[in-house]
Amino acid sequence: MRWLPRSYLTLVYLLLYVPIIVLVVFSFNDSRTGYNWGGLSLRWYESLFNNHAMVQAMWNSLWLALTAATVSTMIGALTALALHRYRFRGKKVLNGMLFVVMMSPEIVLAISLLGLFLLLGLQLGYVSLLLAHVTFCLPFVVITVMARLAGFDERLPEAARDLGASDFTMTRTVLIPVIMPALMAGWLLGFTLSMDDVVVSSFVSGPSYEILPLRIYSMVRVGLKPEVNALGTLLLVFSLVMLMLSQWILSRSKQ
């Protein structure tokens, strides 16, 4: 009976990956209709990079993901350290809020942020996107760093304090190096979440700052666009590299 679970696993993996494989194969398809095979071609990649608005949206998205990941990693790391080291009033509330952000449907987060920004009169664009993206990335960074801190020898920071280091110096010289792999992994995850987000972004972005997922969204709503196959393939390769990098960092740090 051992073949049964195995073939079942294989079947499900196959179903998960068939659409992705189809997408990649079709991105090299010369045919315009998008269904029939018309020979090998790079024309969709070419037309992608000749599309000025598309390239601009790509840069915007990269910049947004870069900054959102960096800010959320910094705040997330400090949050995790505070939760791990300090006793303070309302710690449970803080934990609870992070949990709520992670669990609540994206659309709920999206409208709540849109409401806030509009009431404050904040122009929708890069800043509103950044604030929103940092917020939904934050809990993921916090749990990644907390997981790292959980297996950490508490005597090290104590020793540093006994030797006269201030809280800040101790954090900088002892804690930061320890949580570095988690910071990098959290950063990569934040970057990817930001690059992929559609739901929150479609609420809090404005015409002044067009980002890639929203551009794709407007393209795929009607009909089939072969350029999307090419773009999707590029994004796939990109995320794959990010994910492998993050796994590599985390597994190397375990040794």
């Binding site: 659409p19 189809v22 997408l23 079709f26 269904y35 992929d196 795929v220 999707g232």
Partner: peptide, 13 residues
């Protein structure tokens, strides 16, 4: 880790 829009679009194909 991969774009969910793109994967939804792939289903359309």
């Amino acid at each position: 880790w991969t774009n969910s829009l793109v994967r939804t679009y792939a289903l359309k194909l």
